[in-house]
Design a binder for these strands. Structure first.
Length: 294
DNA sequence: AAGGTCATCAACCGCCTTGCC
DNA sequence: AGGCAAGGCGGTTGATGACCT
């Protein structure tokens, strides 16, 4: 059972590509372009899995690839991007023209990790190693957790007592969530019908920085008066000034447009969509230019 | 020279996401 | 809305070469 294989493995070559295979693949893509990878091997006369062809083309045969050593500037950019994005190699590669995600991933694991360790920086957390290990000894306060990381709050009602559990990504085991706090509510049956109505309710909320002060939404209700800022639901979730924004008088465009070009963007609060770039000062919250999606 | 260890990187694997029907 | 196929991604493996003893 399980997933059907992406190709007929019994009749495919594996391992290193030969020069002839490379030439066949290049010739086919030059003639027909990148298309359906699944059918490409057969059409090109290759005894390879479609995925293998795609990988070979993307990582090694594409004409726009920049081979050779990484420059110091590239190193620093990778470090900065990794500190923000983590192991999102394809996103990182999108910021380095001519470099592939696989190349950057390998380079990170073989060179940059060691480089950071030599600098006394934990390559996972991007914090000084001493501080990083110390923080494993003492649990962070809630405020520290909120300001330094992303936490997950889970409203669990599986037991007889409703409780709110707060999780944070483990510093010891990145990717794993560890419980940093739990609040238990004393249940008063008459006043707490939620559990009865929604026995399997398990809402997961995400709280993360940056929480930018939203000047745009101040004074909208009554201009000239100091009023409590009112936000629509979308804005409360962080899609401030997005397409769906309903609390402003005029609809604001998504910052950077749908293609992230930045044209026509309205960064009136000074930050772009991800809350990274500060327009007036040309500085960035995380110290580099705003991101584009690939 | 031979064997062992380490570093590098191309390639694979399996899961997730996306788009189409 | 749900199922399926294809593409994409990140983690891992394994072959190879360099270096050391």
């Amino acid at each position: 059972m399980g997933r059907s294989p992406c190709c007929e493995k019994a009749h495919t070559n594996k391992g290193a590509w030969t020069k002839e295979e490379d030439e066949r693949l290049i010739a086919y893509i030059k003639a027909h372009g990148e298309g359906c990878w699944r059918s490409l091997p057969k059409a090109a006369g290759l005894l390879r899995c479609g995925k293998s062809c795609r990988l070979r083309w993307i990582n090694y045969l594409r004409p726009d690839l920049k081979r050779g050593n990484f420059t110091e500037e590239e190193d620093e950019l990778i470090i900065k991007l990794h500190s923000l994005l983590g192991n999102k190699w394809s996103l990182i590669a999108g910021r380095l023209p001519g470099r592939t995600d696989n190349e950057i991933k390998n380079y990170w694991n073989t060179h940059i990790r060691r480089k950071l360790i030599n600098r006394g920086i934990d390559p996972t957390t991007h914090r000084p190693i001493q501080e990083s290990s110390a923080s494993q000894d003492s649990k962070p306060t809630h405020l520290e957790a909120i300001t330094s990381n992303t936490i997950n709050i889970s409203f669990a009602s599986s037991s007889s007592t409703p409780k709110v559990e707060i999780f944070q990504e483990s510093t010891s085991f990145p990717g794993k969530q560890e419980k940093i706090s739990m609040v238990t509510f004393k249940e008063e049956k008459d006043e707490c019908p939620v559990e009865e109505n929604f026995p399997d309710l398990n809402l997961e909320l995400r709280i993360s920085l940056p929480d930018v002060v939203d000047h745009r939404h101040q004074g909208l209700v009554g201009e000239g008066k100091t009023t409590t800022p009112r936000r629509c639901f979308k804005c409360s979730l962080g899609t401030i000034n997005g397409m769906e924004c309903r609390c402003g008088r005029m609809r604001c465009d998504v910052v950077g447009g749908r293609n992230g070009s930045g044209k026509g963007s309205d960064m009136s609060n000074g930050f772009d969509f991800l809350g990274l770039a500060k327009k007036e000062t040309n500085t960035c919250l995380f110290g580099f230019r705003s991101l584009e999606m690939k």
